[in-house]
């Protein structure tokens, strides 16, 4: 029997578990819809904030041996404008049966809430809250994602204005990701995306004798992130029963199955689009189907979290 790639993510039926990750392929309706047409199970828009941001100058995104490093700087047209883009995107994705995940960020809990109110008007299927940015009310600008209390405040602020599915995107850059996840869950989160980029890291050009990124430092993604993402998803799903979009270095069916066995319900795909484009979705689905057939797995739910023993 042909293995079934379909998954149920917080009540949403996805044709397959592969989700276009936030920040990949930007936030134009046309490119997001194309990802859906190319076989993504769901599509995440680029993070937006109430206030538009230009982002950092180039070099801002670079390939390296282990994947990518980026310091785009959360460039976005602002949540009011993004809301219109998301409306067009949703119009294109609905007929395909591909859910839309809208990503937001802010500098304070209130900014998060205002961004959520705006993008909610486009009726996304999930709002994903990117909490890896600096908390401007913290003396040292510590990201919300590194502080369970701050993560809970943001979650509660968005929960207060949005009754739909609410996912929190967690950072791997904390020794206690489970504590952050638990705090967000208690504040009303329906699920998690784990994980955001690792680091920050740095690349240096030995001829120029300086960091290559204009921002000097940036987030690391791609294959280098996979083992860390696996561990984070494993820990979160061991502690909590909420669904997780496992994200980080998924570039093969093998990595995808590992992530499901760690406990993920859906699988974010980002850096793997480099060089391959949206063809990556068909390839990953085919590879995963082949692996499942070989392992005698009829549905991913059979093995979700099985690595926990």
């Amino acid at each position: 029997m042909e293995p079934n790639l379909g998954v149920n993510l917080a009540g949403l039926e996805l044709h397959n578990p592969f989700v276009l990750a936030s920040g990949i392929w930007g936030s134009a309706a046309e490119t997001l819809i194309r990802a859906g047409q190319a076989g993504a199970g769901a599509v995440t828009s680029k993070s937006c904030s109430v206030v538009p941001r230009r982002g950092h100058p180039n070099p801002a995104v670079l390939p390296w041996r282990g994947g990518l490093i980026n310091a785009v700087g959360l460039a976005n047209p602002g949540a009011a404008e993004e809301r219109l883009i998301l409306r067009d995107t949703q119009r294109g994705l609905r007929p395909l049966g591909v859910p839309l995940i809208a990503s937001i960020f802010g500098g304070t809990p209130d900014e998060y809430a205002r961004a959520a109110e705006l993008v909610a008007q486009a009726e996304p299927d999930i709002i994903e809250v990117n909490i890896s940015c600096p908390n401007v009310q913290n003396e040292f600008g510590v990201p919300f994602a590194l502080d369970p209390g701050a993560a809970a405040q943001v979650t509660a602020a968005v929960r207060a204005v949005y009754s739909g599915r609410l996912f929190i995107k967690l950072s791997p850059n904390t020794p206690a990701i489970t504590a952050v996840a638990r705090a967000a869950a208690q504040a009303g989160a329906d699920g998690f995306t784990a994980v955001n980029t690792l680091g920050p890291g740095m690349l240096i050009d030995t001829h120029a004798r300086m960091p290559i990124l204009s921002n000097r430092i940036g987030g690391i993604s791609g294959p280098a992130l996979l083992p860390i993402a696996l561990r984070c998803v494993y820990e979160i799903t061991q502690a909590l029963s909420l669904p997780v979009i496992g994200t980080g270095g998924i570039a093969s069916g093998e990595a995808a199955l590992q992530m499901v066995m760690a406990g993920a319900t859906a699988l974010g795909v980002g850096s793997a689009l480099a060089g391959e484009g949206t063809a990556v979705f068909q390839r990953l689905s085919a590879e995963l189907r082949t692996l499942m057939a070989a392992e005698g797995i009829a549905a991913l739910s059979e093995v979700r979290g099985c690595a926990h023993g």
Binding site: G23, G26, A28, E30, T31, V61, L68, S271, A274, G277
Partner: peptide, 17 residues
């Protein structure tokens, strides 16, 4: 363009990168 390698989406023209 930011990345030049089909990831960031900055350079889209319609659905094309």
């Amino acid at each position: 363009m930011r990345c030049g390698i089909g990831v960031c989406g900055s350079c889209h023209c319609g659905s094309q990168l």
